[in-house]
Design a protein around this nucleic acid. Structure first.
Lengths: 354, 354
DNA sequence: TTGTAGGCGTTATCAT
DNA sequence: ATGATAACGCCTACAA
């Protein structure tokens, strides 16, 4: 009952009647020892219930077979999907995920990064482009390869896998403009602490500006990401600056909040109000009407980040920037504005997935 | 540029003009060295950008300051919340989360557990009561404290923090019975690979049996957890065994799927169909009508598991079983069945949160 | 208060 | 093919 002490390699070696070195080799590389010896060692190990001591191995090999990830709230469904995919991908390669999360707090992110480096993470996954300068510097100094995810680093200084939130945002805004909308409101995420949210908002402004339309400040509200906040924000916009015919949500939960508020108020979607989101969470496609949005392949981003990191650790080199597709998904929440002029044809001509 | 090699404690000691031991103590416990020495060491460490080597420390102290968690799909919002809360709680105590996930596959869970043990996890969090026998045995043999979460272990053999899914399920079923429902259908989770799903389904059967009602097999469908599957399952039930006035979802996404399908078919909720879920995800309260469900405090479960593990690692002992509250949340998706007899009073008398 | 030295469990470099 | 043995970087009695 009382487990005196876990067996170590020396115990296995003794039980198998070989030296420490041979036992180590037998376990590490079948080709290095005679078949008979190997079997003896394996049996002894199984018999004793031997479990290698990772820290000792890490100390000797200077590799922990561990990848660190520092994510904003992992309970955001979009990050949860990426986390899962990343962990799964690493597992098949014998790597394990060291996970830290923070609430869009860059100091916490730095602290978490330090903690993961200290734990010996062989590689690191971060979200977004904006960080404390020390964060990336520390990583670089420690010689730890890292991948920035979600966004794309146009400076070419960092490895990254993601998409241009700005241009995706331009695309979805153009979709509304093509439908004939001119009066548009935005429920943005927290642009001060989230570069994705900022890029998305900038994209809206760009697209509007390209057609000579200004986005008045009163038509923009910034909130944290959640359905409830989306509802409240939509209500606030209606109060503060009515007259818009379309709302752009900074992400799907915000857009869904707007949709629910419309339903509660009896505002017809899309006849009286068009709504678009960003991310394409599962629910977006299940609602009726379905939410028009940009699909962000979050699981693929997580997997790809893992794949690239493992490749780099194996000495292979990968292109510095990996752009993920972010298609516009047109569903039922968008249509021509009420009292729209003649034929709002463009909308119909678009395929469902652009 | 070329980072020759990361500085180690010996470098710090040399720079500070003290011995290795003193440097170690200065960093570990302020009270152990003279204030002046301490400052010298700290300065030297900062100057050199010293980062302690976790593996070496773990080897020496036999503690990794790491907690392992093996979760079913972390992208299920309910697990995502727990993961986040757990990671956050551990972080403030200087611990880090080692995360592995699997798709309700117990062999994968065992493999993941082994991987985490090998990585030196000081403690471990698992989900549910059902595991490969080796999983818990290995943990016990290695002397690693663990917490089973979500469910409650009535055998008293394991530390656990969760709730009785069976009795919660009985409560919500009784709520339907009290409203006058007699013809009930169930969209259950995968009972073969998920003890929570099984307990919930059993709870429904128990509650019905207590009133002399049988649940015919054709009124039960088992599917994986997702909104889309909930929709499809509801449609299938309607086809296969119509005539029921209430559906019980194995979790909220399933119930929401049923709700959406009702909306698509023009079935009035709750007038023609009552719907209940389980978990109380954020969306449940935002829909109109709001979803009647059981609130599972997932973030609290994650945090509590962390708290208990840290306490045990610190030598404090904790009660073996921690029961979390799982209140019935009555919202708009439940009401008396159509053509119900006289007064379906019980419903009205219940407070919103029982 | 500070220094010396042995040990934590593996891997890797030599020989043999 | 296998066996000694020296790292790996840190902690912690024990001594001074």
């Amino acid at each position: 009952m009382a487990s005196v002490r876990s067996p170590r390699l020396a115990d296995v070696a003794r039980a198998a009647g070989v030296s420490l070195a041979t036992a180590s080799r037998a376990l590490a590389d079948p080709a290095l020892v005679r078949e008979r010896t190997r079997k003896g060692v394996l049996d002894a190990a199984a018999m004793l219930g031997y479990v290698p001591h990772g820290a000792a191995r890490a100390l000797a090999t200077r590799r922990s077979r561990t990848i660190g990830a520092v994510f904003p709230p992992v309970d955001n469904p979009i990050f949860a999907g990426a986390t899962h995919a990343l962990a799964q991908h690493l597992a098949v390669a014998g790597y394990t995920l060291l996970l830290a999360s923070h609430d869009y707090d860059y100091d916490a992110e730095l602290a978490a990064t330090r903690a993961l480096i200290e734990r010996g993470a062989d590689g690191m996954v971060l979200v977004g482009l904006v960080h404390r300068p020390e964060t990336l510097a520390t990583l670089a100094r420690a010689g730890i390869p890292y991948e920035l995810t979600w966004s794309l680093d146009c400076t070419g200084r960092h490895h990254c896998v993601g998409l241009s939130h700005r241009s995706a945002s331009i695309r979805i805004t153009q979709h509304l403009l093509d439908l004939g909308h001119r009066e548009i409101a935005v429920i943005a995420g927290d642009t001060a602490h989230n570069d994705r949210a900022r890029e998305r908002l900038d994209g809206v402004r760009d697209a509007l500006a390209a057609r000579g339309i200004r986005l008045p400040a009163r038509r923009v509200v910034e909130v944290g990401f959640s359905v409830a906040r989306g509802r409240a924000a939509f209500a606030a916009l209606l109060e503060r600056a009515p007259g818009f015919t379309a709302v752009i949500g900074g992400n799907d939960p915000l857009a869904i909040g707007a949709l629910l508020e419309c339903r509660a108020r009896g505002i017809a979607v899309p006849d009286a109000m068009s709504i678009v989101g960003f991310d394409d969470i599962e629910l977006a496609g299940e609602l009726a009407p379905g939410l028009t949005t940009i699909r962000v392949p979050s699981a693929e981003i997580g997997r790809e980040a893992g794949r690239r990191l493992l490749a780099r650790l194996a000495g292979r080199s990968v292109p510095k920037v990996k752009t993920m597709p972010a298609p516009l998904i047109v569903r039922g929440t968008t249509g021509p504005p009420p009292h729209a002029g003649a034929k709002p044809a463009p909308a119909r001509r678009r395929p469902a997935v652009v």
